[in-house]
Design a protein around this nucleic acid. Sequence first.
DNA 1: GAGGTTAATTGACAAATGTCAATTGGGCTG
DNA 2: CAGCCCAATTGACATTTGTCAATTAACCTC
Lengths: 236, 236
Amino acid sequence: MPLRTSQNESDELRKLDLFSDMEDVHFEALMRGAYVQNFPPAIELIHEGEPSDFLHVVLEGSVELFAGWNERETTMATVRPVSTFILAASIKDAPYLMSARTVEKSRIILLPSSDVRAIFDEDQAFARAVVTELAQCYRHVVKNTKNLKLRTSLERLANYLIRQSEVSAEPTGFDLPIEKRRLASYLGMTPENLSRAIKALQPYGVTVTGQHVSIPDDRDLRHLASPTPLIDDPKH
Amino acid sequence: MPLRTSQNESDELRKLDLFSDMEDVHFEALMRGAYVQNFPPAIELIHEGEPSDFLHVVLEGSVELFAGWNERETTMATVRPVSTFILAASIKDAPYLMSARTVEKSRIILLPSSDVRAIFDEDQAFARAVVTELAQCYRHVVKNTKNLKLRTSLERLANYLIRQSEVSAEPTGFDLPIEKRRLASYLGMTPENLSRAIKALQPYGVTVTGQHVSIPDDRDLRHLASPTPLIDDPKH
DNA sequence: GAGGTTAATTGACAAATGTCAATTGGGCTG
DNA sequence: CAGCCCAATTGACATTTGTCAATTAACCTC
C-alpha cells in the first residue's frame, strides 16, 4: 500500500542537489503527489520499453539497473541511497531504456513524472539542476563506454578495485558493495571470468576473501590498471 | 584565420532544435561572438582532458569523436552536418571526455562556451532545448552500451547495416558513411574482424563492394540481428 | 546441526576476437 | 599511366573470454 512521505523523508529528498534549489512551493507540491513504498528484494520496479510514469528515488536499500536483449541480460548500474534513476526518461516522457529491480529490501519514493515535468517548466533552478544531473549521467555513461572499449576485463576489474579502495579509504580494505555475479555483469564479463580475474590479480597485491578486498600495497596494481580520472573518477 | 559567420550559416544554425526557440536577441548575441573556420582533414579540434572553451557546430564535412587510453584508441561517434558535439562539457564547464578530429575538410562554427552558459542562464527556451539535447545524448550512449554488452561483434554489424539500410531507404542499397576501419572501431572490433564479419554476413543476404552495401532480401539478416528500437532507433 | 539452495570456484574445452604479417586493392599525385 | 601510399583482405596463430559441468563454499531455515 503506497504511503505519503514523512517529514524526515521529504528532508532527505530536499538535500539532493536535484531538489535543493527548487522553490518551496514547488517542492511541497511535488511531495503532496509523491508516494513512498517498501519493496522486498528482486522486485521489478520498471521495465525497459515502458513509459516512465514516475521518477523513482531510492531512500533505503539498493536498486539494480539492467537491460536485456534476446535472452541476454546485463547490469548497467547499481543505485544507492539517496538518489534517483533514469531522470532522462521522466523528463522527456520517453520509454525506459533499462529495467530496475530491488537488490535488497528497499524504500522508494515515487514522484509522478507529470508533476516533475510541470515543475520543470515553472522552476528555473530545478531546470538548471536537471541539466547538471543529465550532464553527469551522460558523462558517467561515456566513461563506462570508454572503460568497455579500451580496457580488457582484467584492467576493468583492477581499476574498479582501485576506485573502491580510494572511496572507502580504509587501510584494512573494503567490502564489495554488490554480489560478485552482479559485479561481473556490470564489468562486462561472466562470473567465472571474474573469479579467474580476481585470482589473476593476487600477484599484484590483491586479496579477496568473500566480499572483503584488501590491497595493502597497490603500486603494482596501479601500474597494471593505469587509472585515469577521465574514465574512473565520477566527479571529473 | 577565423571568420565571422555569414547570414546563411546563422540561418543553418538557427534551424537546429537546440537554437530554434532561443530569443532573437540572445541568438544574435551568440552569433556576434561566434567564429567559423575551415579545417583540413585529420585536424584535432579538441583533446580529451582539456577544458571546453567552445561549443562546436559542424556545418560541412564530418568530425570523428574518439577516446584513448594507454596507447589504445577507439571511435566513439561520427558527427555530421548540421550538429553540435559534446554539449555536456560546454554547459557544465567540465573537461572533455573525448577528443575530436576532422575526417574530411570541414567547416566548423565555434561558439564560446561562456556565451552559451550565459544565455543558458537567461533564456528559458534554450535551457529546455539543452535538456532535450542532453537527454537524447544520454539515451544514445545508453543504447550504445547495451549494444556493446549484449551483442557479439557480428550482431552489432548486422544491426548497424539494417539500420543504415532503413535510413537510406534505397532499394539499390547504400554507401557506408565512414571508412571501414573507423566503422570497425566504432562497433568495437578490429578492421580484420570487421572484414571477416562482413564476409560472414554474405550468406544472410549482405553484399559489400567497397563502400557500397546492398541487402536485396533482409529477412535472414533480420532474424540474426533481432533489431530493437530500444538499442537501434536513435529517436526512440 | 542437518539439509537445501544459491553463489562462487575450478577444470576442460569452445568460441570469439585480437595480433602480426603478407598480399591485394584502391586512390592519389606527378 | 606509373609509382607510391594507405585501406582492406586474408592467413596463421595467440589471447581473451564464454560455456558447461562438477565441486566447494556460504547462507538460511527448520
